[in-house]
């Protein structure tokens, strides 16, 4: 079995060499690992590598191919990149170029202020939307001079993370 797996921004090739009970031999890119890996609970793994033990928690993310992996101090975003993922990525390539024209929020929240109108000219650093989440307000600003093309949300709307809010040109 062989898979492409993306961890944060790094893309790796992972190949299973052998697997006998908990003894697993896997190559990650050019490096070969012999690991004693066992699933001790739902979402919880214990790994022993080079005589050192390490716990990894694997929680499914937004889709069945996305995971959040937590070690004691670090948290990684992991994505299985298979044929379907690659197909979707190719199809969305055109959209990616437009990404810098979309103002979105990385966290869910409520729209509390939209201080701009459609067709309004805005200057770099100007606030175009204010979102409140958990009683903290965050201002979202444009990074360059632009024109407001579309406003996709209304005042008091509840928005999800990464939802497009405003399109600029």
């Amino acid at each position: 079995m062989e898979l492409q797996i993306k961890i944060n921004e790094r893309l790796t090739n992972v190949k299973l060499i052998s697997r006998e009970k908990n003894q697993i031999s896997v190559s990650v890119d050019d490096k070969i690992y012999s690991i004693d890996l066992c699933k001790v609970e739902e979402n919880e793994y214990s790994a022993i590598y080079n005589g050192k033990s390490q716990n990894i928690e694997i929680v499914e993310g937004e889709s069945s191919k996305k995971y959040i992996a937590n070690t004691y101090y670090k948290s990684f975003e992991i994505e299985i990149v298979d044929a379907e993922t690659r197909y979707l990525q190719n199809r969305n390539k055109g959209l990616l170029n437009q990404e810098q024209n979309i103002i979105s929020t990385p966290m869910p929240g409520k729209i509390v202020l939209i201080p701009v109108k459609v067709n309004e000219k805005v200057k770099a650093g100007q606030t175009v939307v204010v979102i409140s989440a958990m009683k903290m307000e965050s201002e979202y600003k444009v990074t360059r001079d632009a024109v407001i093309k579309k406003i996709l949300i209304n005042l008091n709307d509840t928005v999800k993370s990464n939802q497009p809010l405003i399109i600029i040109e």
């Binding site: 797996i5 990650v28 690992y33 690991i35 890996l37 390490q54 990894i56 694997i58 995971y67």
Partner: peptide, 11 residues
Amino acid sequence: EDIAVITAFIE
């Protein structure tokens, strides 16, 4: 980091 990748691979 690689061990996290391997764990996701197995899962």
